[in-house]
Every structure is written in C-alpha cells, then in structure tokens.
Amino acid sequence: MRKKKNGFRRPVIVKQSKQQQHQPSVDPITGKKIPKSFVFSRGKLPGSLKQLQMDLRKLMLPYTALSLKEKKRNNLKDFLNVAGPMGVTHFLILSKTASAPYLRVATTPQGPTLTFKIHEYSLAADIARSQLRPRCPKDLFKNSALIVLSGFVSGDPPLQLTTNMFQNIFPTIDVKTVKLPSCQRILLLNYNKDTKLIDFRHYSIRLQPVGVTRRIRKLVQSHQVPDLRNLQDVSDFVTKAGYGSESEADEEAATVTLSSDIGRMNRASTKSAVKLQEIGPRMTLQLVRVEKGLCSGEVLFSEFGEADGKGKGKGKSDDEMKYEEDSEGGEDEEEQDGEHPEDSEDDEELD
C-alpha cells in the first residue's frame, strides 16, 4: 500500500518587470478595465508546444506574465488565487492529447471557456527563418496588438461568443486619441465557413513613405555614410534602382495619409504605404467546445456531439473522450493529491 503525505502546494510564481508593476488597471482615456492574461499549460507538453506557449505570451504582451512559473501540481484554483489580485481577466491554456493539441481561452473567474483544436501551427522562429529579412524591432511588443476579425457571422451564437471573447482579450482603443506609433502589431483571425477553421495570424505593421526609393530609405534610417567610390556623381546614388520593385509601395490601395509624424521618414500629411510582415506564431484553429464555466459547467456547444446540459455530450468521438479524460482527470488527481512533484521523495512504502 502506497501512502502519500500531505505536502505543501507550491504557489504559482509570477515575475514582473518594473514596467509591468506600474501598469494601470484602467485605461485613462477610455475608462475601461485593461484586460490581462495568463498563458500556461495543463499536462505535459512536447518541446515545440512549450515554445508555442512562449510565443503566445509574447503575443499577449505587455499585459501578460512573460515569466510565469508553473508547477505540474498547480491547478486552476492556484492560478485563480494569483489572478484575482493581479487583475488577470483571461486564461490561455495549452494542452495535448494523443491525437491533437488544444487551446482553451477562458474568462476569469467564472467563464465561459472556448476550446479550440489546433490543426496546424508554426512557431515564430519558423516564420522568421522562412523570411529573407525578418523584422523584430526592440519596441515591437511595448504595446498591445490590434485585433481584426474576418468572416465571423454575427447570427451564429458560437461564433458571436468567439468574437466577443477575442475582442475583450485586448485593450480597446479610441480611434480619435490613439497614438499611431503605438500601433505596431496586428492579430488577424479569419473564419472559413466552409471548413469551419480559423486562420490565426500575427503581423508587425510598418510604414514606408510613398515615392521614396529603397536606397534613400536605407540612407535615412541607417544614419551611415553611403559607399560612393564606384559612382561618378551623388545623383547616381539617388537615381540608381535598388533591389526589388521600387513601385511596390506606391499602390493606392495600400497607402494612407498620416495625421502625425512617425519616425524620421513618415511625416504628417504625407502618404505612406502600410506593410504587414508576419512574425508568428501561426495557427489553424477549430472551435470544438464552449463551456459556461471556467473549464467546466454546462456545455453550450460541442462540435463532437449534442450537449445534454450537464457538462457532458452525447455521441462524442474518441477524440472528445480522450480530451475530457486528459483535461478533467488530471485536475481531479491534483485536487486529491495536493502535492508538488518534488515532494515525491517523501512518499512512503507501507506493507
């Protein structure tokens, strides 16, 4: 007979930078509460999904815990106990079954919870390696990303709930007072009604002045003296064509007129081209379940079968049953044990 002692449950550790410690809880302009998030996992994850978890934390910056330290024996109550005093409003929870990884997005402290099956994903590092000139400025994650939703039908309750969930994860902006330099990232969610899949894409936003050659842009931005040894005149440097198409940024559909200065090249009342460059992570998601509570409660929607209103679904597939075993069974075990894995050496073998 194996007997376990009641060990001490290690708390969830959250390390915050000085900037995060002084973050306001209410937006001074809109007067609305600023949403904050925890991104963590339930169960054991392979290395690639652990990196996806870190990529999601960076995506949710600055209003998330980038250095959240979690233990295997920490359950949802542990995270809720820390989330309350810190003003955390949403959980993003990664998990893995034998068939597929899942992402749960939940509103604290009482739900609802949306469960997405991750069909495909690419890490931010994979996206960067596929690009000729990866772009990641040092201040890219200083401000929250903008959220853009496409293809979500307002009349479909599950999709409407998905729309509301993602809109509330990020701070709202006032288009009249927002500072353009703070808009550096965008999160795009595109729903395909035929496949029922959601394309999850994360981009950086950059501006290029219209009518200015690439050589001049590089000269102004780099602050370096150009190499003119092989040129007869300075005008040769200005007029010589650069690499790539110099007219790609001059398309009317991609240009905007700025209301304020942004950097050295993009000046107020001038036209600039808006360029999006993917920075990752990238995911293909499918909404498979909606629960009324926080990872529990009445099932409002299930892609696997008809819900019976008691948190269980009828006609579930093997994949759904396995998901419930991993997500719910692990929580029950942790509630009963109340121990940290490092305390296992104190277990005693009794005859």
Rank of each mutant, 00 (worst) to 15 (best):
G7K: 09
R10M: 15
R10G: 14
V12C: 09
V14H: 05
K15H: 08
V26M: 02
K36N: 07
S37G: 02
G47K: 13
G47Q: 07
S48L: 06
R57T: 04
L61E: 10
L61S: 10
P62A: 10
A65S: 09
K69F: 09
K72P: 00
K72M: 15
N75T: 14
K77L: 11
K77C: 12
D78I: 01
D78A: 04
F79A: 00
V88M: 04
F91T: 00
P109D: 08
P112V: 03
I118Q: 12
L123P: 08
R129C: 10
L132C: 08
D139P: 01
I147W: 03
I147L: 09
L149K: 00
S150H: 14
G151S: 13
G155L: 06
P158N: 15
Q160F: 12
T162N: 11
N164F: 03
I169G: 05
P171S: 03
D199H: 05
R201S: 01
H202C: 02
H202V: 07
Y203T: 09
R206M: 11
I216P: 08
V225Y: 12
P226I: 06
L231E: 04
D233E: 06
K240L: 09
S247N: 09
A249Q: 11
D250L: 01
S260Q: 15
A268C: 05
A273W: 04
A273N: 10
E278H: 00
M283W: 02
M283H: 00
L285V: 00
L285F: 02
Q286C: 11
K314A: 15
S317H: 14
K322D: 11
